[in-house]
């Protein structure tokens, strides 16, 4: 099960090795050429001799994580977040530490040991630590050193009706969409890039766009979805089960109007549900890609993901499958000259 393997792998920003290897093993027999760049982005080229436009598809491999920065006398690990983590969600969560996937738990002072006024405040990072069961610094140092990373220890499971929960659907769901899409053949030069360091400032995508010089780029994301109790329509961003979401404006991009309208039209024509992402916060790799070179016509298509950046994220499997269908339909339309730059 691709989503399970991808989401349970560890991929801290800058240290995406586990995820990269899984994807490499998956795509090496499919793409014409597979290689990595200086930052570790995995690039898979298909049908490069075909008639242009050249299309770049991206999904990022990295996830938000915790970097171990110091080991306390008692063997407890101090950490700092690598990527945007709300410290309030960390307390009492299990994590996996380092390449050996050591089990650890995020602890804090028990509620009984806190003053009433302290209980009103969320735990700050300084009050949290990871406990791997070591009884001293010396013992902990046998297993862990500063610079190692911890990721959430969530298991992938299908729950409810046509939904799945896991960590890091942002953006392993995008990686899965790209892998599934690659298995189809297009009469277009299509480059699939599994990028690094998106969560720490969209750092991997710009170099890939610079290297590959695409005419058109599409990023596939897991994006904010908060269609939950008491949230007004304008605070939801996307609706789970409402289909892939096309970005309009976010913190780093104003979408190319003609291309985003084209994508929505393709969805309507093919009977694939499509929604617009209705918020301006957040960003994705398009923010770096569209400003590369002389400017690149780009779009972002996202799978709505509840509880993004938290340990247990939820997606709709229908949205996931519809994103694969929509991406194929868009590529077919480009293949047939339905959109040109």
């Amino acid at each position: 099960m691709l989503l399970k393997r991808l989401t349970e792998a560890s991929g801290p920003s800058g240290f995406e090795d586990e995820v990269r290897q899984i994807i490499y093993d998956e795509v090496r027999g499919v793409a014409d050429r597979v290689y990595t760049d200086a930052l570790g982005t995995l690039i898979a080229e298909t049908n490069m001799g075909a008639r242009e436009p050249k299309v770049l598809l991206t999904a990022h491999m990295d996830e938000v994580s915790l970097m171990i920065v110091a080991i306390e006398e008692q063997g407890l690990l101090r950490f700092r977040p690598n990527g945007g983590v709300d410290p309030r969600i960390l307390v009492a969560k299990p994590v996996r530490v380092g390449a050996e996937r050591l089990v650890g738990v995020i602890g804090s002072r028990a509620v009984h040991l806190q003053k009433p006024e302290e209980r009103e405040q969320p735990h700050s990072l300084e009050q949290l630590f990871i406990d791997i069961g070591a009884s001293s610094r010396m013992e902990a140092e046998k297993y862990v050193q500063p610079g190692d990373f911890a990721v959430f220890a969530t298991e992938y499971e299908e729950i409810g009706e046509r939904r799945a929960k896991a960590k890091s659907f942002d953006d392993r769901v995008g990686c899965a969409v790209l892998i599934e899409t690659m298995k189809k053949r297009f009469e277009l030069p299509v480059i699939y890039a599994f990028t690094v360091q998106e969560e720490t400032g969209l750092r991997g995508a710009g170099p890939v766009a610079y290297r590959t010089e695409p005419d058109i780029a599409i990023a596939i994301e897991g994006t904010v979805c908060f269609d939950v109790v008491e949230t007004p329509s304008h605070g939801q961003s996307t609706i789970q089960g409402g289909g892939p979401a096309v970005s309009v404006v976010d913190a780093r991009t104003i979408a190319h109007t003609a291309f985003r309208e084209h994508i929505v039209r393709v969805g309507e024509e093919q009977g694939i549900p499509v929604q617009l992402r209705r918020t301006v916060g957040g960003a994705n790799d398009v923010g770096a890609i569209h400003l590369t070179g002389s400017g690149i016509v780009s779009a972002a298509i996202s799978v709505p993901t509840r509880y993004i950046h938290a340990p247990a994220q939820i997606i709709s499997l229908d949205d996931y499958e519809n994103t694969i269908r929509l991406l194929e339909a868009v590529l077919r339309s480009i293949e047939q000259g339905g959109f040109s730059v």
């Binding site: 104003i254 209705r278 301006v280």
Partner: peptide
Amino acid sequence: SVIDIDDQGFLRVAPL
């Protein structure tokens, strides 16, 4: 930028 339209036709917006 318009991000949402409610049932009564009021628009919700975000800054560019």
